[in-house]
């Protein structure tokens, strides 16, 4: 099979098309996803190809969309739900966290809600507060939901497929700023990604950077620059899955480097970095040379005019964190 060069958006589309093609129970639904192919055009041509009863334009009602998808999943369909921006997902929170994830448990295993909730996330598009949110941590707290965070075209394609085939609800946190910004060659063979497996993007021996989402690429660039300048040797790990996260890869790296920096775009307090820091100190306390550092957004709203530059963590702040980790003395 010849590989095709696809950007992230096209890779997501190819993943959905593959599952719509191979499983008649898969439907895609959301605001504007049909005729127009979604506001980002991630589903361009899918309604024309699969029909309006499988690629469904819905009323403007995030709660209603997710809640109806829950019912569809109970009956045996596998809905892929598009939320236009992650900032609009909050109205659907109850149905994701206390319904989709809970029918299995609450019915003693009799019912389940296999469904995919697509949550286009992160800043960098001059979108302001509601269109630039990294709100994935809200969904970590409760169990029952898998959370996938692709940041390459290949992962976007294979994680979409894995998410659709998973027997439980999956939140797919899509990297909006990478939709059109990044392409790679993908063999469209329908192979799913392995859920729960991190990627060691770059090996290193001094500091472990744990990250996910678009900022993984900045963290890697910083690591490359430092290596070129003869600075600290950074190991970059893209978590790829938040629930369940790849504890083995994390601990292997931490035990090697003894220094950990968590980098994510989401706000600091109880962000995913908090969980990572807690688990790492529980399981690898004796290996740590320094406190675990976090480079994140602050606990304030995403600023429209200066948020992309100053709210999100950037390369400079990642470099500073590396420096602090290397210079730290007890």
């Amino acid at each position: 099979m010849t590989p095709r060069k696809l950007n992230v958006m096209e890779a997501i589309s190819a993943g959905m098309a593959h599952e719509l093609e191979t499983d008649p129970n898969v439907v895609l639904m959301g605001e504007d996803v049909g005729q127009a192919g979604g506001i980002f055009r991630t589903s361009t041509g899918l309604q024309q190809r699969f029909g309006s009863s499988r690629v469904i334009d819905t009323p403007l009602d995030e709660k209603g969309i997710v809640a109806h998808a829950v019912g569809m999943a109970l009956y045996g369909l596998k809905p892929i739900v598009e939320i236009q921006f992650s900032g609009f997902i909050h109205d659907a929170f109850e149905h994701i966290m206390f319904c989709a994830t809970r029918y299995r448990w609450a019915s003693g295993g009799q019912y389940s809600c296999p469904m995919v909730i697509r949550s286009p996330s992160y800043g960098g598009i001059k979108g302001g507060f509601w269109h630039s949110q990294s709100c994935e941590a809200f969904f970590v707290h409760h169990g029952g939901l898998k959370i996938l965070v692709p940041s390459t075209p290949e992962d976007a394609y294979r994680m979409m497929i894995a998410a659709v085939r998973d027997p439980d609800p999956v939140l797919l946190v899509e990297p909006v700023p990478l939709y059109r910004a990044m392409s790679s060659e993908i063999v469209l063979d329908g192979e799913p990604a392995e859920i729960g497996r991190a990627e060691v993007v770059r090996e290193g021996s001094d500091v472990t950077v744990l990250t996910y989402g678009p900022i993984r690429h900045q963290a890697t660039a910083v690591a490359d620059e430092l290596a070129a300048d003869g600075g600290a040797s950074i190991e970059v790990i893209d978590l790829r899955t938040l629930i369940p996260f790849d504890i083995d890869s994390i601990l292997r790296s931490v035990k090697k480097t003894g220094r950990v920096i968590v980098v994510h775009e989401a706000p600091l307090s109880l962000g995913f970095g908090a969980e990572l820091a807690a688990v790492i100190q529980e399981k690898a306390f004796g290996y740590l040379h320094t406190p675990i550092l976090r480079v994140t957004a602050p606990d304030v709203p995403y600023h429209f005019s200066i948020g992309d530059e100053y709210y999100r963590p950037n390369a400079h702040r990642i470099r500073l964190a590396v420096q602090r980790a290397m210079e730290f003395e007890f």
């Binding site: 009863s53 109806h68 829950v70 019912g71 569809m72 109970l74 045996g76 369909l77 319904c99």
Partner: peptide, 17 residues
């Protein structure tokens, strides 16, 4: 009341199928 749209979604699914 949270389950009213679940019921409606399931009915819609049966119609689609």
């Amino acid at each position: 009341g949270s389950y009213i749209p679940h019921a409606c979604g399931a009915a819609w699914a049966a119609k689609i199928k």
